[in-house]
Protein backbone atom coordinates (compact mmCIF):
# COMPACT_ATOMS: atom_id res chain seq x y z
CA UNK A 1 0.00 0.00 0.00
CA UNK A 2 1.20 3.45 -0.75
CA UNK A 3 1.20 5.75 2.29
CA UNK A 4 -0.46 8.35 0.08
CA UNK A 5 -3.71 6.70 1.15
CA UNK A 6 -3.29 8.56 4.45
CA UNK A 7 -3.56 11.77 2.49
CA UNK A 8 -6.76 10.62 0.83
CA UNK A 9 -8.13 9.80 4.25
CA UNK A 10 -7.07 13.24 5.45
CA UNK A 11 -8.81 14.95 2.52
CA UNK A 12 -11.98 12.97 3.11
CA UNK A 13 -12.08 13.78 6.80
CA UNK A 14 -11.43 17.44 6.10
CA UNK A 15 -14.26 17.59 3.60
CA UNK A 16 -16.65 15.89 6.00
CA UNK A 17 -15.66 18.37 8.71
CA UNK A 18 -16.15 21.34 6.43
CA UNK A 19 -19.57 20.11 5.35
CA UNK A 20 -20.46 19.64 8.99
CA UNK A 21 -19.60 23.24 9.72
CA UNK A 22 -21.91 24.31 6.96
CA UNK A 23 -24.78 22.02 7.78
CA UNK A 24 -25.02 21.71 11.55
CA UNK A 25 -26.67 24.40 13.60
CA UNK A 26 -25.71 23.44 17.12
CA UNK A 27 -22.69 25.55 17.93
CA UNK A 28 -21.02 22.75 19.87
CA UNK A 29 -21.35 20.24 17.05
CA UNK A 30 -20.18 22.89 14.64
CA UNK A 31 -17.14 23.33 16.81
CA UNK A 32 -16.51 19.61 16.85
CA UNK A 33 -16.50 19.64 13.08
CA UNK A 34 -13.84 22.33 13.19
CA UNK A 35 -11.79 20.03 15.41
CA UNK A 36 -12.29 17.28 12.90
CA UNK A 37 -10.86 19.50 10.18
CA UNK A 38 -7.85 20.29 12.35
CA UNK A 39 -7.27 16.60 12.99
CA UNK A 40 -7.46 15.84 9.31
CA UNK A 41 -4.79 18.43 8.60
CA UNK A 42 -2.68 16.97 11.42
CA UNK A 43 -2.84 13.60 9.75
CA UNK A 44 -1.66 15.16 6.51
CA UNK A 45 1.22 16.84 8.34
CA UNK A 46 2.31 13.59 9.95
CA UNK A 47 2.18 11.87 6.58
CA UNK A 48 4.24 14.62 5.00
CA UNK A 49 6.75 14.24 7.81
CA UNK A 50 7.09 10.60 6.91
CA UNK A 51 7.35 11.44 3.25
CA UNK A 52 10.18 13.90 3.70
CA UNK A 53 12.01 11.97 6.34
CA UNK A 54 12.24 14.77 8.91
CA UNK A 55 10.27 15.68 12.03
CA UNK A 56 9.26 19.24 11.15
CA UNK A 57 5.80 18.14 10.05
CA UNK A 58 5.23 16.49 13.40
CA UNK A 59 6.34 19.68 15.17
CA UNK A 60 3.81 21.70 13.22
CA UNK A 61 1.11 19.14 14.04
CA UNK A 62 2.09 19.46 17.67
CA UNK A 63 1.71 23.22 17.55
CA UNK A 64 -1.60 22.79 15.80
CA UNK A 65 -2.79 20.72 18.73
CA UNK A 66 -1.72 23.37 21.20
CA UNK A 67 -3.45 26.09 19.28
CA UNK A 68 -6.53 23.92 18.90
CA UNK A 69 -6.61 23.43 22.64
CA UNK A 70 -6.45 27.18 23.22
CA UNK A 71 -9.12 27.73 20.59
CA UNK A 72 -11.44 25.17 22.13
CA UNK A 73 -11.11 26.77 25.54
CA UNK A 74 -12.01 30.20 24.29
CA UNK A 75 -14.65 28.98 21.85
CA UNK A 76 -16.47 26.93 24.42
CA UNK A 77 -16.36 29.84 26.84
CA UNK A 78 -18.01 31.99 24.20
CA UNK A 79 -20.66 29.35 23.56
CA UNK A 80 -21.39 29.10 27.26
CA UNK A 81 -21.73 32.84 27.71
CA UNK A 82 -23.97 33.13 24.63
CA UNK A 83 -26.10 30.30 25.93
CA UNK A 84 -26.42 32.07 29.24
CA UNK A 85 -27.79 35.23 27.69
CA UNK A 86 -29.78 33.82 24.79
CA UNK A 87 -30.71 30.37 26.08
CA UNK A 88 -29.82 28.82 22.79
CA UNK A 89 -26.81 27.05 21.33
CA UNK A 90 -28.00 27.41 17.74
CA UNK A 91 -25.84 29.59 15.53
CA UNK A 92 -28.91 30.57 13.55
CA UNK A 93 -30.33 32.38 16.54
CA UNK A 94 -27.39 34.78 16.63
CA UNK A 95 -28.23 36.53 13.41
CA UNK A 96 -28.10 40.15 14.45
CA UNK A 97 -24.99 40.70 12.33
CA UNK A 98 -26.91 42.04 9.35
CA UNK A 99 -28.29 45.20 7.98
Amino acid sequence: MNPVNYLYLSALLFTIGASGVLIRRNAIVLFMCVELMLNASNLALVTFSRMHGNLDGQIIAFFTMVVAAAEVVVGLAIIVSIFRTRHSASVDDSNLMKL
Binding site: A18, V21, L22, I23, R25, V91, D92, S94, N95, L96, M97, K98, L99
Partner: peptide
Protein backbone atom coordinates in the same frame (compact mmCIF):
# COMPACT_ATOMS: atom_id res chain seq x y z
CA UNK B 1 -27.41 42.19 -2.77
CA UNK B 2 -28.22 43.01 0.83
CA UNK B 3 -30.16 39.79 1.13
CA UNK B 4 -26.83 37.95 0.95
CA UNK B 5 -26.00 39.59 4.25
CA UNK B 6 -28.62 37.64 6.16
CA UNK B 7 -26.70 37.53 9.43
CA UNK B 8 -26.47 33.73 9.52
CA UNK B 9 -22.90 32.74 10.25
CA UNK B 10 -23.32 29.53 8.30
CA UNK B 11 -24.09 31.42 5.13
CA UNK B 12 -20.89 33.38 5.56
CA UNK B 13 -19.01 30.14 6.20
CA UNK B 14 -20.50 28.74 3.04
CA UNK B 15 -19.30 31.65 0.97
CA UNK B 16 -15.86 31.30 2.53
CA UNK B 17 -15.82 27.63 1.69
Amino acid sequence: LRRIQNGYVRTYALSMF
